[in-house]
Simulated scan of single mutants.
Amino acid sequence: MTFTTACLAINTSMTAAGIEDGRLLRSVSKSGKVNRDTLSDWAVWSVVEQSSKQIGIEHFGAHDLRRTCAKLCRKSGGDPEQIKFLLGHSSIQTTERYLGSEQDIEIAVNDNLGL
Rank of each mutant, 00 (worst) to 15 (best):
residue 98 Y to T: 01
residue 4 T to K: 10
residue 10 I to K: 15
residue 7 C to K: 14
residue 18 G to P: 08
residue 85 F to E: 09
residue 113 L to C: 03
residue 14 M to G: 01
residue 13 S to C: 07
residue 60 F to M: 03
residue 95 T to P: 06
residue 89 H to A: 03
residue 19 I to K: 04
residue 112 N to Y: 10
residue 24 L to N: 04
residue 76 S to N: 15
residue 14 M to F: 02
residue 36 R to S: 11
residue 68 T to P: 09
residue 66 R to A: 05
residue 69 C to L: 14
residue 10 I to A: 15
residue 7 C to T: 09
residue 4 T to L: 07
residue 57 I to W: 12
residue 78 G to H: 00
residue 28 V to G: 03
residue 42 W to E: 11
residue 91 S to F: 04
residue 13 S to Y: 05
residue 78 G to I: 00
residue 99 L to W: 03
residue 34 V to L: 04
residue 108 A to H: 15
residue 22 G to V: 07
residue 20 E to C: 05
residue 12 T to W: 02
residue 31 S to N: 12
residue 13 S to M: 05
residue 98 Y to M: 01
residue 109 V to K: 13
residue 57 I to S: 07
residue 48 V to H: 07
residue 35 N to G: 15
residue 4 T to D: 13
residue 94 T to W: 00
residue 37 D to F: 03
residue 47 V to T: 11
residue 99 L to I: 07
residue 40 S to D: 09
residue 29 S to N: 08
residue 110 N to M: 09
residue 88 G to S: 06
residue 49 E to P: 00
residue 90 S to E: 10
residue 38 T to G: 13
residue 79 D to A: 02
residue 27 S to W: 10
residue 11 N to A: 14
residue 27 S to Q: 12
residue 56 G to S: 12
residue 30 K to M: 04
residue 104 D to Y: 05
residue 64 D to G: 08
residue 4 T to H: 08
residue 111 D to W: 02
residue 114 G to D: 14
residue 7 C to F: 07
residue 84 K to E: 00
residue 68 T to N: 09
residue 15 T to P: 00
residue 76 S to I: 01
residue 89 H to D: 05
residue 88 G to Q: 04
residue 12 T to Y: 03
residue 69 C to A: 13
residue 80 P to Q: 01
residue 5 T to P: 02
residue 65 L to V: 15
residue 100 G to E: 08
residue 110 N to P: 00
residue 46 S to P: 02
residue 97 R to K: 15
residue 51 S to I: 01
residue 38 T to W: 08
residue 46 S to K: 14
residue 74 R to E: 10
residue 53 K to E: 14
residue 109 V to C: 08
residue 22 G to T: 05
residue 83 I to C: 00
residue 40 S to I: 05
residue 1 M to K: 13
residue 62 A to F: 11
residue 86 L to W: 00
residue 8 L to R: 15
residue 115 L to E: 04
